[in-house]
Design a protein around this nucleic acid. Structure first.
Length: 191
DNA sequence: CGTAAGATGAAG
DNA sequence: TTCATCTTACGG
C-alpha cells in the first residue's frame, strides 16, 4: 500500500469515508481487469447501532476489528455480497462500505457478470458492484487490500468540492448521522 | 435447536 | 410494494 493510502486507512471510518472517494478500485480476474472509481461510501463503527460491529466481535464481523487495509465482505438478504474496506486500529470494529463505483475498465466483463447492458445500473449499489466485480463469496473477508487481485489507485484529480454527506441508506438505526459520502455530480451513485 | 431480520435489488 | 433467498446471531 502507498503511504498516502496507509494514512487514510489508519483513520477512523468516518474520516476515511470521504477520503476514499475518487480512488480507483481494481480487481484482476482470470478473464481480465475490472475497475471503477469510487463515487459513494458509507462509514460504520462499533459505537454505532447501525453497524454490524455494534454488538461486539462475532465470527462474521471479526474482519472489521483488524487493522486498516483489510477487507470485510458480508452476505445479506440471501443474495447479495457487499465489500467494505476496514480502517482504523486493530481491535476497533469499523469499516467503509463501498456503495458505488463509476465503471472504468473491463466494462464488457462487468456487463456480462451483471447480465445487463445499462452502464448506469452496472455498479450503482453495493450488491451490484460486488456482482460486477465477481465478489460472490466471503473468502476475501479478512484478506489484505493491495494484493495483485484487488487494490486501489489514487484519484487523478481534486474532488474536494464535489463531496456531499447524507444519512446512510437502508438502515433503521442512527438515521440522523450523515455518514454516507458521495460525489455530487456523479450519475453512478446509487438510487 | 428455532427463528427473525437484514448496510439489497428487481420485478409487478 | 412485494418478494427472492439464506446466513447470522441470539434466545431457549
Amino acid at each position: 500500500l502507498s503511504d498516502s493510502l496507509k494514512k487514510i486507512l489508519a483513520k477512523t471510518s468516518v474520516e476515511a469515508g470521504p477520503l476514499l472517494l475518487g480512488w480507483q478500485l481494481i480487481r484482476e480476474l482470470p478473464e481480465g481487469k475490472v475497475s471503477g472509481r469510487i463515487v459513494e461510501t458509507e462509514a460504520y463503527h462499533q459505537s454505532d447501532p447501525a453497524s454490524h460491529s455494534y454488538r461486539g466481535l462475532t465470527k462474521r464481523t471479526e474482519s472489521m476489528y483488524k487493522e486498516g487495509g483489510h477487507l470485510y465482505v458480508y452476505f445479506t438478504y440471501g443474495i447479495h455480497y457487499c465489500l467494505n474496506i476496514v480502517t482504523g486500529k486493530k481491535g476497533v470494529g469499523e469499516a467503509v462500505l463501498i456503495r458505488a463505483i463509476e465503471p472504468v475498465e473491463g466494462i464488457d466483463i462487468m456487463k456480462r457478470n451483471r447480465n445487463t447492458q445499462n452502464l448506469q445500473m452496472l455498479t450503482n449499489g453495493p450488491g451490484k458492484l460486488a456482482q460486477a466485480m465477481q465478489i460472490n463469496n466471503t473468502q476475501m473477508s479478512g484478506q489484505l487490500l493491495g494484493k495483485k487481485t484487488i487494490y486501489l489507485l489514487p484519484p487523478t484529480k481534486k474532488i474536494d468540492d464535489e463531496i456531499m454527506a447524507s444519512p446512510r441508506i437502508g438502515i433503521s438505526q442512527a438515521t440522523d448521522v450523515h455518514w454516507r459520502f458521495y460525489l455530487r455530480d456523479s450519475s453512478y451513485v446509487s438510487k
